[in-house]
Design a binder for these strands. Structure first.
Length: 918
RNA sequence: GCCCGAAUGGUGGAAUGGUAGACACGAAGGACUUAAAAUCCUUUGGCCAUAGCGGCUGUACGGGUUCGAGUCCCGUUUCGGGUACCA
């Protein structure tokens, strides 16, 4: 009876569906555990072998927890709104809903073949109305709330209105776009429109004029995390800065809580650090500078208040509103020319070309500490969006200011004793202050504190904490996304009533912007409320649907709430989240924000969504090359390629096995190579290919599809092999060179049980040695799985099998297949059944380790001299240190090595080592 | 530039400060077989020795702590990831 993995896997996959093996219900009699994968965007290319890496790991973990008696929630779904489907629609005219459904079906088929234990009854798709109803609902809630900094939580906007009616803006501590001051009387005198505009300044979802990343090629704005180095992540098109009126989420209101929350969760330090940098808290102060010969003043932000005596000029961002008011008539022409030049440069040019540019505004500012007047410049090295869009420049102690000062010949005043600023600035925050009035003689740290104190006491400014984290731009000028539950009346936005949700995405046939430049929804017929008010034409971005999907899995069919209180209080939060690091500053920030907001509303009971997070590494492609001798159709094997003038050519990795080319398949691969000749390795008919690690992509012919692997070796082999490849978190190339090893392992397991045409098992009792191997395995596996060390776990099975030899005793095999079940569920089920066990191995009990089997009878000690091993001696396991010492010292080899000298020290450590120091 | 992370045989990779190279691939040799596949056995870091025992050396490089360092500390190099005028 052969190991017919194909038949076995089909049989059990069908059986699991029939039995509903993986269906899960809330069950208060069992402890719960929630294991989640980052749900995929179903792309047209299907899954490649890199995608299932994390899914396999989480599947093993889920099955393990289940065997340990936990009630495990392990769902899967699709992030099914997004740009690629829409780009494809523009190119081909195929409706995104159609291609998305097709892609999902393909993904499902591929996932099913791998034998995952998902509860598919809980599947969610972000593009379905029953799902995005709750995305829209959350948006309405954000619109109707503001963030109260004194209470450190979101509060209803009606509270804010009541407050304004009572005492205006006095004493208000709320997250806002700009600080406003008005009295209750003024508030009451505001027109309806003015009141609404004022409230917009505080809402957590607000319509704001902001600098956005505009991608002309995609015809939409993008969030900061959707742009990298001036190019869009999707498609790699250039992005430019543009002022637009957009829906935004006030994520920045939660900056401090997002930062503090990191200390409470079990994520890798590096990922937390990435988030900390992205949030970018910096403590400093705002200082007001008066403009010379004018009653104007402006505010700057600095973290180095100690360097105020070294300010030799000021710089404004070109986009700053101050530019217009501070530019003098004489300088106007020059400034306008500069602003024009800056505007023309794309983000990408600004990044690649770091030339120092700038222009003098004509105005001077008065240093509030020294009273001196310094020129105000305008330069694009100052960003409008951070701090106040204006800085004080201290060229001696800031490298950017230094470069600017050198370029424009501005003075540089050193402030720290002994520093040399003739070649470069001294940026370090250390040393003793000089040239700094009342700060002289203090260390930099002391000076920072003192200067801050001085500034606040003398009302020159205030202590301020700034964050780098920006509000999220939430509008996309695209079709394939959630419609906003928003309509406009007299130009003002209003939210639909909750009873009108979901607002379904209308059908359109043209996915391009309208002739008037409106988003594609402008093509929709009757896109208005029943009362005839026009609906919002933008749609929500990709991260909208993925920000709370983990909550929906808890209660996916509830049409009364995102998640019921009971379901949420049972499942609470994701215990283990597995996914890639690429979401560190996008999804993983937005989800935390969204979760904290819902927590503030009292909808959910946990403040953080993902308790533990594990990042799986990327699987890269391993490309193969053949070497064609120039101007011929002859190909030369790897070891001889240097003897010829050759061109390396990518060859499809699917016709290469262990780097050996299937030459017939190669001839058939491409008509061009039909008549190819080969120069083989010496003494064989083998053509050996070269290889390189590259990104997995179609153009490199290195994409490996999991279906092909399943077809050839079976799902159990794929699962084991992906884990065996190396540590889960490490990036590694896909390389099938070792897959025979794990496949052989499974066949050996099979062959233990299968003899001739049936299964035979021995009923004999297990020997002590067999039990020892088994319990060693139990102990190691339990530890390895809990620590996500799946590669060593797979090795542990192989070691155990080597030790067991040909043992086919039921007493050993039953626990063995239970242990194997999380890794290779299909073969485990088959053997479980053959053993005559009831039910499914998935419902069995994880075996417990009996440590007594692991106790050794005797222990071999290595005897070392000065740390170098010289010989070995065997002792009974219970021998005490004194006996060991005495025996070792009396041994003739010891006498030889000690050569009559007394030992200085004898160290016996619990690892079978005796070390003698001479 | 800044912040992380890594570096171990021909390859993927093991190793709570305690016999480095587990496990697997590949390779070499052998058994079985008409043959192939499959299976099984032996060897496999390097150098030296070899009838046999064995010896030396070795975890990117240079130092240090320690009885003992792949592991901890300091410095250097290389590679990978993140981020970038954030004042």
């Amino acid at each position: 009876m052969e190991y017919n993995f194909k038949a076995i896997e089909q049989k059990w996959q069908a059986e699991w569906i029939k039995r509903g093996t993986y269906r899960v219900k809330e069950d208060s009699s069992k402890p719960k555990y929630y294991v989640l994968d980052m749900f995929p965007y179903p792309s047209g290319a299907g899954l490649h072998v890199g995608h299932p890496l994390g899914y396999i790991a989480s599947d093993i973990f889920s099955r393990f927890k289940r065997l340990q008696g936990y009630n495990v929630l392990h769902p899967m779904g699709y992030d099914s709104y997004g740009l690629p489907a829409e780009q494809y629609a523009i190119q081909t005219g195929q409706h995104p809903a159609v291609t998305t459904a097709k892609n999902i079906a393909r993904y499902r088929e591929q996932l099913d073949k791998i034998g995952f234990c998902y509860d598919w009854d809980r599947e969610v798709r972000t593009c379905e109305p029953e799902y995005y109803k709750w995305t829209q609902w959350a948006f309405i809630q954000m619109f109707n709330h503001y963030y109260d900094k004194s209470l450190e939580k979101a509060c209803p906007i009606s509270d804010l209105v009541a407050r304004f009616e009572e005492k205006g803006s006095e004493g208000l501590q709320a997250a806002c776009s700009e600080e406003l001051t008005f009295t209750a009387a003024q508030w009451k005198a505001f027109s309806q429109e003015e009141q609404q505009q004022t409230l917009m300044n505080y809402r957590l979802a607000y319509l704001g004029d902001t600098m956005v990343n505009w991608c002309p090629k995609l015809g939409t704005v993008l969030a900061n995390d959707e742009v990298s180095e001036g190019l869009s992540i999707r498609g790699g098109y250039p992005v430019e800065q543009k002022m637009m009126r957009q829906w935004c989420l006030r994520v920045s209101a939660y900056a401090q809580r997002l930062l503090d929350g990191l200390d409470k969760i079990d994520w890798t330090e590096s990922l937390k650090e990435t988030q900390r940098n992205w949030i970018g808290r910096s403590e400093g102060c705002e200082v007001q500078f008066k403009v010379k010969d004018s009653d104007m003043e402006f505010t700057i932000f600095t973290t180095r208040a100690d360097t105020m005596f070294g300010v030799t000029f000021m710089v404004l961002a070109p986009e700053s509103e101050l530019v217009a008011s501070l530019t003098t008539p004489e300088q106007k022409a020059e400034v306008d020319a500069y602003l024009d030049a800056v505007k023309k440069r794309t983000e990408r040019e600004r990044i690649s070309d770091r030339r120092v540019t700038g222009v003098f505004s004509g105005s001077y500012a008065i240093n509030p500490l020294s009273g001196e007047a310094v020129p105000v410049w305008i330069s694009d090295y100052v960003l409008a969006g951070y701090g106040t869009g204006a800085i004080m420049a201290v060229p001696a102690h800031d490298s950017r200011d230094y470069a600017f000062a050198k370029h424009f010949n501005l003075p540089i005043i050193p402030l720290i004793e002994g520093c040399d600023v003739s070649e470069e600035s001294f940026d370090a925050k250390e040393g003793i202050m000089m040239n700094s009035g009342f700060l002289n003689g203090l260390t930099v740290k002391e000076a920072i504190a003192k200067a801050k104190e001085y500034v606040s006491e003398h009302h020159l400014g205030r202590v301020k904490v700034n964050f780098r984290l920006r509000d999220a731009i939430f509008s996309r000028q695209r079709y394939w996304g959630e419609p906003f539950p928003v309509y406009y009346k007299d130009g003002m936005p209003y939210m639909l009533d909750e009873s009108q949700l979901p607002l379904e995405l209308p059908e359109i046939s043209d996915f391009k912007p309208t002739a008037q430049g409106e988003p594609p929804l402008g093509h929709a017929i009757n896109w208005q409320t029943p009362e005839g008010y026009p609906l919002e034409l933008n749609t929500m971005p990709g991260f909208a649907g993925s920000s709370a999907y983990y909550l929906r899995y808890m209660d996916p069919h509830n049409d009364k709430a995102l998640v019921s209180k009971e379901a949420n209080e049972y499942w609470r939060q994701v215990d283990l989240y597995i996914g890639g690091t690429e979401h560190a500053t996008g999804h993983l920030i937005y989800s935390r924000f969204w979760n904290k907001f819902l927590f503030d509303l009292g909808c959910i009971c946990e403040d953080e969504p993902f308790k533990k997070l594990v990042n799986q590494g990327m699987i890269q492609g391993r490309s193969n090359f053949v070497y064609r001798i120039k101007d011929t159709n002859t190909f030369v094997t790897l070891s001889k390629k240097d003897q010829y003038d050759v061109t390396p050519i990518h060859v499809d990795v699917n016709i290469v096995s262990n780097d050996i080319l299937d030459v017939n398949a190669f001839r058939a691969w491409n008509p061009e190579y039909a008549t190819a000749e080969f120069i083989f390795e010496d003494g064989s008919e083998n053509y050996v290919c070269g290889w390189a690690v590259e990104k997995m992509s179609k153009s490199m012919f290195n994409v490996v599809n999991p279906d092909n692997v399943v077809e050839k070796f079976g799902a159990d082999t794929l699962r084991l092999y992906e884990m065996f490849l190396g540590p889960l978190e490490a990036s590694k190339p896909w390389d099938t060179n070792g897959i025979d090893g794990v496949h052989r392992f499974l066949r050996r397991v099979w062959n233990l049980c299968a003899h001739g045409e049936s299964f035979t098992f021995s009923d004999e009792e297990a020997t002590k040695a067999e039990l020892k191997s088994l319990h060693k395995l139990i102990k190691k596996l339990t530890w390895d799985i809990e620590h996500f060390s799946f590669n060593t776990a797979v090795s542990a099975f192989m070691i155990c099998l080597n030790e067991l030899g040909r043992c086919n005793k039921r007493a050993i095999l039953k626990p063995f297949v239970t242990l194997l079940a999380p890794f290779a569920p299909h073969i485990s089920e088959e053997i479980w059944q053959a053993l005559g066990q009831e039910g499914s191995v998935c419902g069995a009990q994880w075996p417990l380790c009996d440590e007594s089997y692991l106790v050794e009878d005797s222990v071999v000690y290595s005897i070392s001299f000065n740390g170098k091993t010289r010989f070995s001696l065997e002792f009974p396991a219970d021998a005490d240190n004194e006996t060991i010492q005495a025996t070792v010292l009396a041994h003739e080899s010891t006498q030889k090595w000690m050569d009559g000298k007394p030992a200085r020290k004898i160290i016996i450590v619990p690892k079978k080592i005796v070390n003698i120091v001479l």
